[in-house]
Structures are given as C-alpha cells and as structure tokens.
Design a protein around this nucleic acid. Sequence first.
DNA 1: GATGAATGAGCGTTCATTCAT
DNA 2: CATGAATGAACGCTCATTCAT
Lengths: 206, 206, 206, 206
Amino acid sequence: MHMSTNSETKSAAVGTDPTADRPLRADAQRNRERIIEAASEAFRELGLDASVAEIARRADVGSGTLFRNYPSKEDLIYAVIEARMQEWTHVAERALTEPDAAKAFEEFMLTAADAQYRDRGLFEAFKEGLLDEPELFDCKERAVCLSEEVLKRAQQAGAVRADVSADDLGNLTAAAAAAAERSGGGNSEGSPYARYMRILLDGLKP
Amino acid sequence: MHMSTNSETKSAAVGTDPTADRPLRADAQRNRERIIEAASEAFRELGLDASVAEIARRADVGSGTLFRNYPSKEDLIYAVIEARMQEWTHVAERALTEPDAAKAFEEFMLTAADAQYRDRGLFEAFKEGLLDEPELFDCKERAVCLSEEVLKRAQQAGAVRADVSADDLGNLTAAAAAAAERSGGGNSEGSPYARYMRILLDGLKP
Amino acid sequence: MHMSTNSETKSAAVGTDPTADRPLRADAQRNRERIIEAASEAFRELGLDASVAEIARRADVGSGTLFRNYPSKEDLIYAVIEARMQEWTHVAERALTEPDAAKAFEEFMLTAADAQYRDRGLFEAFKEGLLDEPELFDCKERAVCLSEEVLKRAQQAGAVRADVSADDLGNLTAAAAAAAERSGGGNSEGSPYARYMRILLDGLKP
Amino acid sequence: MHMSTNSETKSAAVGTDPTADRPLRADAQRNRERIIEAASEAFRELGLDASVAEIARRADVGSGTLFRNYPSKEDLIYAVIEARMQEWTHVAERALTEPDAAKAFEEFMLTAADAQYRDRGLFEAFKEGLLDEPELFDCKERAVCLSEEVLKRAQQAGAVRADVSADDLGNLTAAAAAAAERSGGGNSEGSPYARYMRILLDGLKP
DNA sequence: GATGAATGAGCGTTCATTCAT
DNA sequence: CATGAATGAACGCTCATTCAT
C-alpha cells in the first residue's frame, strides 16, 4: 500500500506511462503484499499449520524471499493478524460516524465478523493467545479502544447488555464466524453465518 | 465403529474362550480406554498437534501399542470424537426425561457446551470438518437425532427460535466454548464462559 | 562397549551360539557406537561442518535414529569429545604407572597427540571453546587433573620447563597434530607428525 | 592472480585512459581492498563460515558487487590468503636484510606467526588444505622460496635443526598461533602466545 | 558498474508410522 | 501382544549465488 502509492507518485512526476507492462519496479513491496495475501488464504484453508513452503508457492515466490520479508513463521502470522486488526480498526472508525448508536453497533459487528469469517487464521490466533504477544500490543490496543467506544455508545443507548466488554466482542464474532465456517454457505441472507450473527446480536440485547 | 466391534467381542467372549490368555483381552480393553483418555487430555492441552509419542507417554503404553489399536493418528482422533459424541448422546437422552421442554433445552445446551469447553480437541475437530468424515457418520447421526428431539420440543413450546437446526447447536456450543476458552476463567457464575452461554441462550429465544 | 560386554555376558549365560548371525539384539547401543565412530570420522575429514545427514549415512542409520540418540548436533559433538577425553584420561592414568617421570611425560604426550592426530574434530572443538561448555566440565576436569600430575612429576624431575600448564599441553598437542595433519604422511618415524612432536617435546625441555 | 592483473592494469592506465569514467576504476579498486579487509576481519572473528552477506555488510558494498569481484566464496578466501601470503613474503624479504642469520630467523618466525595469530581464517585455510589449490600455487611459491632462504641461512649458521623444511614453518607457526588463540591473552610478554612461540623456537634449535 | 531482492538446495530437527525383538 | 528403536519425508530456516533494476 505504501509502496504502490510511492510508485504512482514517482511515475506521475516523471510523466511517463503509469500503466505500461514494465515487468518489475519496486516489486519487493508488491511481494510483501502477495505473501500476506497468500498466507491469509493458506491459513484460512489449512489453519496455522499451513507450511511456509505452501505459502511461498501460493505467493509464487521462493521460500527465501518469504524469509527475507518475514524472518520467521511467527512474524508472518503476526503480519497477517496485524493486517486484519487494521481492517477491524477501520470498521470501528466508520461505525463511529454513524449517528444511530444501535445501528452503528450492529453494522460494526456484522462487518467485523465478516472479516473474520473470511479469515479463520485470525480465529486460531485468538485461540492460541497470539494476540497477547507484545509484538501485537499496539495494533490491538487501537482496535480495542475504538471498539470500546462503539460498544459503550450502544450500551448507553440501551441497545446492548451491560455485561460485555470490547474483548468479548472479538471473541464472540470470531466464534460466530468460526461456527459458520464449516457450513460453507456464504454470507447471504439465509446462510448459517447470517443466522448465527442474528442469534449473537439478539443475544447481546439487554 | 471400533468400539462397537469391541463390545460385540466382549459379549461373544463370555464363557467361550478356547485359549488360556483371556486376561490379555481385558488388558487390551483397558489400554484402549487409557489411550483415549490420554489423547483427550493431550488434545485439550496441546491441540490436535499433540504428538502420538506424547499421547503414548501419557497413556503409559508404547507407541506400537497405540498404533496397533489406532492404525493412524486420524483414527485416534476419530475415536476421541466418538467418545465425546457418546457423551453428547447421553446428555440428550437425559434431557428428554425432563418434562419442561424449555428447561430441558437449556440444560442440554449448558451440559453439552461444558463438555466442549473442557475439550478443545473436539472443537478443533469441528473446525477441521472432521465430523463429516464417513467414519463418524453413525455416532454423529445418533447424537444429532436425539438433539433434534430436544430442540423440536423446545421450539414447539415456543422457547427457541424456529430457524435453528440440530447441526447449528453443535456449531454454536462449540463456538461459545471456544470463545470463552482463552479467558481461562473457569465456568463459574460471572466467568466469560457463563456470560457467553447466557448470550447464546438469549439469542436463541424467538 | 558397555553393551557388547552385556550381550556377551547374556549369550554366554544362556549357552547358545555367541557368533551366529542373529541380525539384531540390543542393537540400539551398537548404533550409538556406530554413530560416534561415524561422527568422529566425518568430523576428522570434513570438520565440524560435516552434516548430520552425512554422519547418519556413514553410520548407516536414518537421521531420526541419530536424533533419538543425540537430540542435537551439539550433543553429538559433545559425545565425540567426551569419548576422546576419556581416551586422554586413560593415557594419563597409564603414564602415572611409569616410574621414570620424564619418560612417562614423553609417552603421555605422544599418545595423547596421536589420538588427536586421528581426530581433528577435537582440535576444532578446542578452538571453538567447546571444551569450556558446562556439559563437558566433568570429563575435562578428570583429564586435566591427571595430566597435571603427569606434568608436575616431570617438572619436578627437571625434565620439563616450569612455565607450562596442563591446559597448555592440550593446546600444544592439538596444534602439533593439526599442523601435521595436512601432510598426511602417517605417524611413522620420519613423518612430519613425528618431527613436529620431536620439536614440541624438545621445546618443552627447560 | 587477480591482484597481479590489478597492478598491471594500474601501471598501464597511467595517463592513457581514453574514456571519461576513470574515477570508477579507482572506486572498484577501493572496493576490492575494502572487501578483502572486511573478509579478513570477518574470517578472523567468525571463522570461514562467516557469511558472504556479513562480509558485504562490513565492506559496505552490495553482495552483488562482492560477487562481481570474487565470483565465489572460495575465490574470496583465496584472495584473503593471497594477501596474507604477500605479507609473509614481505616479512621474509625484510628478514633477509638482517645480517645475523639466527636473529633473522627468529624475527621472521615471530612476525609471521603474529600475522597468523591475528587472522584465524588463514589457519583454517591451512587446515582445509586450501593452500594446495592450484589457484594459490604462485603466491605460495614465492613465499616458500623466500622462507626457504631465511631458513637455510639459519640452518647453515647452526641455529636451527636440519630436519625442518620451509613448509613446516608455515604449519608450525600456524599451529602455535592457533593453540594460543583460545586463551585470548594478547601477545604480550607472559601470554600463552609468547610462551608457545618460545617453546616452538626452542624446539627448533638443533 | 552497483545494488539488494529472489532463488532453491541444503541444513538441523520433528514425528507419524513400521517392525525386529 | 507390547515395546520402543529405526525410519524418512517434511518442516522452518540459512545462505551462496543470480539477475532485474
């Protein structure tokens, strides 16, 4: 993301063709993204046991390249989680612009769960306690803080029971997403996933 | 499957053994139980990645013995799940003797979730889709049938929303149990686990 | 050594054929020896960089077997050094039975250097400071203590200069052995090795 | 070999360069020196296992540049040895200007050993038999020839035993240096290094 | 020419599975 | 029948070497 912005800036400044097929540029950054994408996908399909070689294959890079970017498998996992956490943060930020506290909360939950529904890696990470690692403290802190605001607004508006915390929200959405995962029915209206989220949201009302 | 074969063997063997070494059979049976117990415990503590050697050590048998009884790690996992499924079946049977349909449902859910809360191996198995393997079809069928009865009674009594199936119950309890697992606070009154089950049960009301 | 003594004892006691080709017995112990032998040889030829796989190949065992016996390469190296140290200890013990202090010293030095001449692994270990690892403290201690006695006797007899310590003896014999190694001329009379030892022993005189 | 090509280039280039980019040549030359220096240092500290990347970092050049100059790690090692050999050659040349043959020999030995004491890479190279590679034949030849002269003068003066060759001198000084290395006590008066050299020089007397 | 990202073979280590005892 | 030593494929990781920029 950083880098693609960079290259656009660069080529725009020079005035040459920004869309041509010059095969590589600062492809290193592109690789980082490809790797995270591939890892995300592999973790979703195979769990955190997905081998580094498999991830490298999916990202279409050598294992050495993967290592250069993420010196250990743990680092790669952290990077994936961090990416998901930032997604979560953005979702919470958007929710805070919605005036109706109850609606904001519901949309926040649905969107956040959606992200997890699409990436079971994160859920396993929850389970393994990986989110409590110091490496992830910062990005988690931000996500939790914003979630807390969304939650508190909804609680003060009487739309959500008082005995849940922002931490719970992560656990619960992750769980609902994981519960639905096996059914594989997408997240359309009548799908297990939609039903489970309905149950969860109803259960969260006072 | 293995298990049922075993019981047949047992009943057939009553008083008919032509060879002198029947005590070994008792030993073998005891070994099978010890292995399942040890595997259950190891999976709970270490996840499905727990090594076969570790399980053999906990069961105090050689790895060869373990292998003789369960020709592959997968077979062992299936056997553990089967044991849990039977527990589930018993819980459902007991619930069917409770006259109050709503109360029966709630107790069924709490007890079933409790079993899963205490055995994360089963939940991982859920996630891996292991329950859909043909080897487990029979034992799952029985558990699901009985759960269905408990559920339908509660739905007819107007205590549970109509758009959930017996399959969902397994997913949801597993998810709630897993969500609570990390918090580690036991299953006492104010624990995350108790809270999550409350949310789930409330969410399941019509 | 232990084990081969054991099996002899055993088969002798039973009275059956001790030389027959019953293919395996308590072969595990035999493997340990084969591994040490192979490692010793590989380290001599290729240095401590000799790969574990190469050692396993030479010992004609799988890498897993090697690992079972020596859980890490370091452990294997330690085991090799320990074996050499014990050799050293025996040499010193024998030297202490020789009444002529000067002759005892010279024979001790020649025999000890010989052992190192045949195993450059030990010398590299010296260089890497491996002998100072706590795992090897005990076996080194014994060897050094006995060497010290041999040395002191010779010094009191006026056969060796006063400004050398037992530690020095290890360094110097190792160095002489290593110096001669490349020439590959064996340790016969006029070989570089014999010459270097002569120079060393002459240099050690007061 | 590389080196000699270099000096030819240098002298030929004086005042004759037809292209404008001569400064690059100076850079390239500077790079070569920096690389050798860095490699020398890295080998001394980390042994021959020092990674090429580490050497490139110390030399402050890209690994590609390093590779361009020394197409393989082996080439780099050869170049370092060659540099040391030239040092040796200079030491021998200086020794030949000293009228007292015995004193010349002793100083030659002490200075040569000093160079090796400060560069364990060279000693490892000795051990690996690298000096016998054909690539190094020329530079070794020169060093050995000059050493031989120093040695012969001393032998004819009756200061050194007759049964040592110039080859032996390299082996022996390398060994003494290596033997002292672990003790780390510098090369001051009473250090192990000084002691070992004393022993060696005494041992070399007839 | 210089750079450093990419490569992939090879390392030490692990573990499900097999089999001699 | 129980045992645990042996196996070897696969893992995460490293590094000499190559090559697009």
